[in-house]
Design a protein around this nucleic acid. Structure first.
Lengths: 145, 145
DNA sequence: GCGTATATTTCATCTAACTAAACTATCCTC
DNA sequence: GAGGATAGTTTAGTTAGATGAAATATACGC
């Protein structure tokens, strides 16, 4: 199998994944009283770890003022907390609170459900191969950045 | 390999995928002058096809009024168009315009880039197995809904 | 120490996004 | 064809999200 074919297969899979995931994302964000932008911040914190306020400004392509206020609203809601950096006291690291983490995990658990039911449909004789393939992808992806 | 192990592997891969994709999403949305909510609508249209205004209200968990206004702003920007349904003249199907489609494709092309560079890192002897595994996942996933 | 650069916040202000309620147009049922 | 249900829009009013400009606190270079 050549590279373009393989690339296309992985993109096809990505399409399916995005289609299934996006619905959950909207549902849990708004269902929990959060805007998409707020949920996006929480997801970033979950997947990429704590980040400075300026980091969010760059990440979300907004002004420092905008980022500061976005974080402030999330602090007010009890979903994140700001922790002063010891190295540089101008900087504040934004962390998920336990409550914030729960919001993210609830949303992600919806994904777990469809992933489980997908795995359950795999024929026994193909499980080993799928497992190996996923391991390879995960290993190689970790070298990407 | 048992189901829980396999589920975990697929979730691990999902985590990597989301982490890599989310950055592009923010960057292209705001870089193109769109809010996350607007980009989300365009993505939905791309991945799931045309949809009625009421469909968006349910999907995004907003009131019919909110959905109507959101679509109106996108129409004003030239990214989507409303087409009256022939069957039921109360209904208007929302479609991507060519311009809207380009916005989505530009954002998605960022993913193509990292997918290509990931595939390029796969050892030759594992390509066949990865290709097979992806085909299996894609086939089974299409049975999910 | 002094001047400059950086991280963040605050303020005034504008637009986006949302809701409830009232309204229009169309469909469906009996 | 009258009455009620459904799809969507409009309006008035609220909150979130954005900006630029000014303020504060801290760090860094010389």
């Amino acid at each position: 199998m050549n590279e373009p074919e393989l690339t296309q297969l992985l993109l096809d899979w990505s399409t399916i994944f995005v289609r299934l995931s996006m619905h959950d994302f909207n549902r849990f964000a708004r269902g929990g009283g959060l805007s998409l932008a707020q949920m996006s911040v929480l997801m970033h914190l979950h997947y990429n770890g704590p980040r400075e306020v300026m980091g969010f400004a760059e990440l979300m392509q907004v002004s420092p003022a905008g980022a500061s206020q976005m974080i402030e609203r999330l602090v007010q809601s009890g979903l994140v907390q700001r922790i002063e950096s010891r190295d540089d006291r101008r900087v504040r690291q934004v962390h998920l609170t336990e409550q914030g983490r729960q919001v993210v995990l609830t949303s992600i658990s919806a994904r777990r459900q469809w992933v489980e039911s997908l795995i359950a449909r795999l024929p026994d004789e193909q499980r080993e191969a799928v497992g190996q393939a996923l391991r390879v992808l995960i290993d190689r992806a970790s070298e990407l950045e």
